[in-house]
Design a protein around this nucleic acid. Sequence first.
DNA 1: TCGTCTCACACTTTTGAAGTGA
DNA 2: ATCACTTCAAAAGTGTGAGACG
Length: 912
Amino acid sequence: MLGVEMYPSLALGPQRLSDCYYRDREPAAHVPLYPTTCDMAARGLPARLLQPPPATETPGTPQDNVKMELENASLWKQFSTVGTEMIVTKKGRRMFPQLRMKLSGLNPTLRYILLLDIVPVDSSRYRFQDSSWQVVGGAEARLPDRVFIHPDSPATGEHWQNRSISFHRAKLTNNTLDAQGYIILHSLHRYQPRVHVIEARDVLMWGRAQHSFIFPETQFITVTAYQNNKITELKINSNPFAKGFRENGMNCKKQRDARLKRKITCNQEESLDIESCDPCDSTELLPQSVELPSSALSIINSALPITDSGFHTDVPSLPDQTVSDQPLVLGQSFLTSEIPSSMESHPQTTPENNVNNTLMDESGQLMDLPGYTSTFPTAHLRSSSHASVPLHQSPSIYSMVSSTQNSGLELPQPSTISSPPSMSTYSSLPSSDYPGLNSSTTMPSSTTSPPGSSYPPISHSTSPHLLSSSSYHSILPTDQSQDNLSPHTPTNPPFQSIPPSSCQGSGLTIDPGQNQVDDGGLSSSNETTPAIQNPTQTAFPFPPVQSSNDPDPTSPQCQSLPQSALSFQPVSQCNPNQIPTPSDSNTTPTAFPFPPAAQSTPNSMTNQSVFPFPPFQQIPNLNLSTPGSAQTPTTCSFPVSQSSGLCTFSTIPNPIYSTGSFSFPSTNVIHQSPMQSVSNTLHHTTAYPVTSFPASLPKHTTPGHLQNPAPTSSHTSYPFPTSIPSAQHPLQSLTLPSSNSIYSVQTIPNPTQLQSTFTQSYPNPSFPHIQPQVGNPTQITSQSFHPIQTSNTSQLNPQLPQISNHPQCPTSSNAYPSVAPTEIGTFSQLNSAAPYLPEMVLHPSLLPPFDPSLSSPAPPSLYNPFPSYSLRLCQDPRSSLHLPLRHIYRQPQHSHAHGQGPYFDIGGRAVF
DNA sequence: TCGTCTCACACTTTTGAAGTGA
DNA sequence: ATCACTTCAAAAGTGTGAGACG
């Protein structure tokens, strides 16, 4: 089914939805939704429409405790330490490792939809140079976000909790014209997968309770061909489909070389003998016989001993590598804890077997060998405890921030969750959540930091100039970070402690040159790729594609913080300026709503000028709060971003929300968990940073630029945070102008602090992950976004401590508390670019999921159970739609036997 | 020339239809 | 006729390397 609230646009009242949707037994075809339009419309709608349907439910239900655990976190961490790369192809490529998680805390009787979306972590483009990922420029225009709906959706909480949930059918593509509904990503960009759990009481209604989860260790860089040999090794060793490339495999290099030789020899012989030889002669035989001595024998030798060895050998080595090369990575810490004892104990031998039985991912788990785990700090163990461990324990699990209504409820959970209050805030957010997302997106831009801000972290690490490399770091003064970081090192400030060398390998580094480039890019903002203009900012700044062209999308933009925050005014309200931009942006299909930098106001944000979008959402918010400067303009731009994200805040009318739930909620909640972790053993927060790509912050972000105005403080740097705020938007901004910064703050602890904590605790992940993405991921992960007064870093700092200290912080690092919706939003849009709205495509495969009889025995008492059938959207929604749903339409099912799974195309453009 | 992307290839796994037997 | 199990072929997933493209 389709969740509406996730995408605010969709969130319109049931009535509305009904118009567009209807249940259908038919296998669901892809149903792409175009949130943008929806969002737009939704915003225009009266608040009440947006509000969630009256809930019969009682708050306080288990929902509040919703937790998600990344089952194969150890595998992910392994990859993360090296720098996870995901192949993207035109035909679509599955992710490996797969996203496999376990949910807990759901109301067994309620139905939920699980969504997967992947958002850019920053607005940079990367290149693998000198054994590390370096920022080489601004990101390309953001594509319409697409959401993969778990085929089992909707299903009862019992259903989800009784099994591991895998998104292995989700495919990634770099084909911007993809009609399959796959998730479209740009190559050589860094992304962060997010999982959303949306309560679906009714087909028409989504998201009363929304929980979003981000696992920092799942960040990855998209590639068309693997760049890092270590990643290739890991993939081969852990992916059953790549068995053939293992040492003992039939398609291993030796074998291939041997075959090649054979061919060559054959050809030679043929050429020599061709005249005399009979074509029928088995060339193979000849070659083999000839070659055997050399290649064959060698192969045999190697193979024999190895057998599984390929795997095994590799495995051990990998861990070693990771360990040695990279000092501890955040992930590592997690790993240790997370890795199930069983896993650890696993002899190398069994991997294959296990794999067979388990998901492919599991193979990865197999990977987790003692050696590997050992790498992780013991301390983490606790937090990480993980997977095998009870949910809360598992470090991997992130507690969610629920946007759920109930949010106010408990959250007793020790480990993950943030204080209840925060929860409540989120709850209110539901819709806001997304908004939050949006904001996040904006953030990147940097509100906090100007262009640089978004990448601040990077800057640090990579370039001395830059602020702290990691997002967190970014916050820190450049100097500090710089000092610590080596140019090449991934630069996560946190990881500074880590030897550069280690970092280098996997860590991302920023290109010194980038800054320049970025700048240039910025100047050219108009160009198709905003990102380019300003890497950091650009990314975020970019308006959602949709917005650009579509009114819808634009609307979001317009929505820009101000609106959303304020009240989701109709698009029309948006700045004219902004609107135009979108058109301009057209650059990508996604077209960024945001107007060129010029539009943006210049004020506070110097950079902004460059980017149409205010670097940070915050700014907008700030602006709102403080009328000032350019912000306004910026806000406009932001809106887009906001809109782009899940955000649809507009839909959400929650009072709380309005109140500025933002700041706190997200922060509190989010933070807390992270904080907790951080403060204590976990460092989760740190972990997050780690996960995020460290180093590579785009140089472009020049420290100096922190446009931000001030309030955000953070210009310093936490772009993300800023974004978050923006997400918060409107409401928050209003209430908490400063709050904006808050996010940033929360999410991003002080750079310094963070650094200290993180770095200490975690080595850079090999991943270049920039931490922070902070903006996004961190926020999310950590949840942490405290309502920090973004304004000053200094402020942030203080907060940071708090965070760490936060009593509530759950011990288990592994468990990731759900991210506050807002945060999420930030991410998605996030960071970067958050601007675009996601496209949702519903795959046919979804349909089946629900078999009431099969699924949970217990019918939802609260509401009438709706049929499991997948929803069918209006086929040609567009025509009818005056509303948001217009975009929804039905896609043809996949011919593939294996359903790809449902995808929603949030973007404004049609899936086809 | 370089970086990036696409494609065909060989291999493995997964899937689902067909066959068999109870 | 139904169900469970096995077998087999096709489809799909995977990394590699050559080549094309800009």
